[in-house]
Amino acid sequence: MKIGVLCLQGAFLEHEKMLVSLGAEVKEIRTLAHLTDDLDGIVLPGGESTAQGKLLREEGLLLPLKEKIENGLPAFGTCAGMILLAGKLLDDDTVHLGVLNAVVKRNAYGRQLASFKIDADFKGVGKVPMTFIRAPYFESVGKGVEVLSKVDGNIVAVRQNNILATSFHPELTNDLSVHKYFLDMVKARG
């Protein structure tokens, strides 16, 4: 299983470590040439979505990646990655990949002093540790989007067919279960 990890900016090494420990092969994606047809899935890491979105465009990665995900390539975005996937951002006209039928509120909890850590239920997995860093959440989700987790009434994890998105960072914990969930999605697609 070969998983691409978008390595433009942010905490991509943390994802790579988790994927490798689950037996996946990892490929770093920095330019269009890296986005090959042999990828079985792609991970969009946490970081700053404005920086990542700008680099996605400059590298000419935005449309080819969007097309791949629309054609069924399993994608997993955490925090900034979730913002890149979103179909719409609240109070913001920017759309990056726009493949996920949901509205995302950026910096939804506030600045760093509002960042927090909590254990909460993740559908089909059970309790998982969740780290929220200047995190976004889903303001609303549209058709075909399954809510996987809510914290304090806010939607923080969803799945839409081949797309998984979380506003928290499983890659910052020692818990592999959300990554395993994603790799199971990749396997099921076969």
Binding site: C7, L8, Q9, G10, A11, F12, L13, E14, G46, G47, E48, A51, C79, A80, Q112, S115, F116, K117, T131, I133, R134, H169, L172
Partner: peptide, 18 residues
Amino acid sequence: MAREEINRNLAQMLKGGV
């Protein structure tokens, strides 16, 4: 301790950046 970890985590998000 929790704060310390969350604060180190924000720096992780800045990696690979300017």
